[in-house]
Design a binder for these strands. Structure first.
Length: 584
RNA sequence: GGAGGCGUGGUGUAGUUGGUUAACAUAACGCCCUGUCACGGCGUAGAUCACGGGUUCGAGUCCCGUCGCCUCCGCCA
């Protein structure tokens, strides 16, 4: 067999009728008319119809084919009659009349069908992922991901970035997510950690004079899974020396827009708009707002509240925030109650119909006043609460209202940069300040003197890139001077000794001439998910985990033998010896 | 850790206030069919209704518990 003769089914559309062709692939659908057999042969590129007449010596074999058998067909390419053209497939103008038909492999009856477009329970899809991935949609997702990788690599390489690989077996560091640990056999009782990101290595590469680094890298965080989060995920990790914030934002922006244009085919506005963290929180109640629709949170000042609703005015006097969201459509009392419950705030309502104010707050308003608040066709939902926690609740409510009202135009996509994040946040549980991003993030120059006196007010050189409400990239300019780094460590309660113990290698490296540097990391799975129009990253990962962290295909995580444990010097103690049987 | 939704032939679903033999589509198997392309027609087989307990003369249906999957909150520097 000379496989070099084989051509992809998609190529057949452009070939001249009468040509002899060799194709191979899977039997997608099989149509048997007694005296005439058709089957669609599927390969990675698409489908082509094979037609077998009764006088064909391969008729009996063709009639006996089953879905997903692997076959090879040599034959003549025929132009179909006008009435027999199938406009739904790319090769619908032609069909193959076989002179040879060979079954390369038979297939057992399938638990799930690659030719069936209906929904199948996801754990079953993952159990038989190799079948699931045969579906054209999944093949498109894999190809899109491949294209995104190629475009990103080319784009960065063209700008002088070197792809440098960093270790997966590393040391556990404090802060951040729970580490995955790997026991050491050679040093029993000690553990490697899988990287949550190559953060420290890429900074060391800057000290090493690499200047421009990137990597497509697997990262590991042992936290609960979500539709947009897996235990293991891929970043496009970037770091550059001799830059400040706008340089990295420009770089990230060019990469994001290049991917959007070349891979997703989106034409988006340039430059990408920017919001400060504060602006995003005030208007959208989140640091990753979906800007494909408006409906901002309306802040009601004590002045605006004066002489209107007494309990709201009182809440404002007490220092609470009072804010409103404008639902574009009217809501019933029942719907508002349900929204209140879901949002975790007490929602008052204000509407305006035929010049009269209505809703639960309507009695405090006359028509013109209600109008001045923006009450109109829909209903104004008003609530009060303390601080950013309240804004976050209103932000979640905004998102829900926007989605339910269909305010998100299909096909619309909107990037936004979020800047000026706080450097530190108060951790009530541990009673200490902790880094919002990570402890190597540089403060804004103008906020440097406030680090000790007012740590919560210090803004940082962190920036996040948000697409359609998902954080798709994030990074910062790093601290490259040791004295400043030590001031930050002191603020987050990391003693000199602890800092020395945990980050000794980094601090030491910084003694020997560290250039100013910064970087950004793209959450590659999320970005590809959005470009593919999917709603979970599992759809763009070849072999993802269930939300329980289990892999129903391989049975991971699995128990290991006593001998394996002994070799590592480990003893497993469990109340229940089999806490989670593998999915079967 | 918490909340919600879901769990019925291989797959996807229906199953009313508890009541005869658990229905439909599709896949599988058999027969028929010469222009289909989600082919069509006839037939066959295929379900301990996730698991365990309870209420009842009687449970897919009601109650309690457990498990699994999905979504969200917590968590994710």
């Amino acid at each position: 067999m000379d496989w070099r003769q084989r051509c992809a089914t998609a190529e057949l559309a452009g070939m001249r009728p009468g040509a002899e062709v060799l194709v191979a692939g899977w039997v997608h659908r099989h149509r048997h008319h007694g005296g005439l057999v058709f089957f669609d042969l599927r390969d990675r590129s698409g489908l082509v119809q094979v037609v077998v007449h009764p006088e064909n010596p391969h008729f009996a074999l063709a009639a006996a084919l089953h879905p997903e058998w692997v076959v090879q067909v040599r034959g003549e390419l025929h132009q179909r009659d006008q009435a027999r053209v199938n406009p739904k497939i790319a090769t619908g103008q032609v069909e193959i009349v076989p002179s040879e038909l060979t079954v390369l492999a038979e297939a057992a009856p399938l638990p799930i069908s690659p030719a069936d477009e209906g929904e199948v329970e996801e754990s079953l899809r993952l159990r038989h992922r190799y079948l699931d991935l045969r579906r054209p949609q999944m093949q498109r997702n894999l190809e899109l991901r491949h294209q995104a990788l190629q475009v990103a690599r080319r784009h960065l390489a063209e700008q002088g970035f070197w792809e440098v690989q960093t270790p997966s077996l590393s040391r556990s560091t404090p802060e951040g997510a729970r580490d995955f640990l790997v026991p050491s056999r050679l040093a029993k009782g000690r553990f490697y950690a899988l990287p949550q990101s190559p953060q420290l290595y890429k900074q060391l590469l800057m000290v090493a004079g690499v200047e421009r680094y990137f990597q497509v890298v697997h990262c590991f965080r042992d936290e609960d899974l979500r539709a947009d989060r897996q235990l293991e995920f891929v970043q496009i990790d970037i770091e550059q020396s001799f830059v400040d914030r706008d340089d990295i934002i420009r770089l990230g922006e060019s990469l994001a827009l290049t991917l959007a244009r070349e891979v997703a085919g989106w034409q988006l506005e340039e430059p990408i708009p920017r919001l400060t963290y504060r602006e995003a929180m005030e208007a959208y109640g989140t640091d990753h707002p979906d800007l494909r629709f408006g409906m901002p949170i309306m802040n009601l000042t004590p002045e605006a509240l004066a002489g209107t609703v007494p309990f709201l005015a009182e809440a404002a006097r007490q220092g609470e925030r009072v804010a409103a969201l404008a639902s574009p459509r009217p809501l019933s009392r029942k719907e508002i109650d349900a929204l209140s419950l879901a949002a975790g705030v007490d929602l008052g309502s204000l509407s305006l119909a035929e010049g009269k104010a209505g809703g639960s707050l309507g009695r405090f308003f006359d028509g013109p006043l209600a109008q001045s608040w923006g009450a109109g066709e829909g209903v104004l939902l008003v609530a009060h609460g303390p601080g950013d926690v309240f804004l976050e609740k209103m932000g979640a409510l905004r998102l829900r209202l926007g989605r339910e009202a269909g305010l998100i135009p299909s096909g619309a996509h909107q990037f936004v940069w979020i800047t000026d994040f706080p450097l530190l946040e108060w951790n009530g549980e541990d009673s200490r300040w902790q880094a919002v991003h990570h402890p190597f993030t540089a403060p804004l120059d103008e906020d440097l003197e406030r680090i000790e006196e007012s740590p919560g007010d210090v803004r940082s050189k962190q920036y996040d890139l948000v697409l359609d409400g998902f954080e798709v990239a994030g990074g910062s300019i790093r601290i490259h001077q040791r004295p400043l780094q030590e001031r930050i460590f002191a603020q987050i309660g990391l003693s000199k000794e602890e800092a020395q113990e945990k980050f000794q290698f980094l601090l030491e490296a910084f003694r020997y001439g560290a250039p100013p540097h910064g970087g950004i990391a793209f959450g590659f799975d999320r970005l590809v998910m959005l470009m593919a129009g999917m709603t979970t990253i599992r759809e763009v990962i070849a072999f993802p985990l269930l939300s329980s962290g289990a892999d129903p295909l391989t049975g991971a995580p699995s128990q290991v033998t006593a001998a394996q444990l002994a070799e590592l010097g480990l003893v497993v103690e469990l109340a229940d010896p089999l806490p989670r049987p593998p999915v079967s």
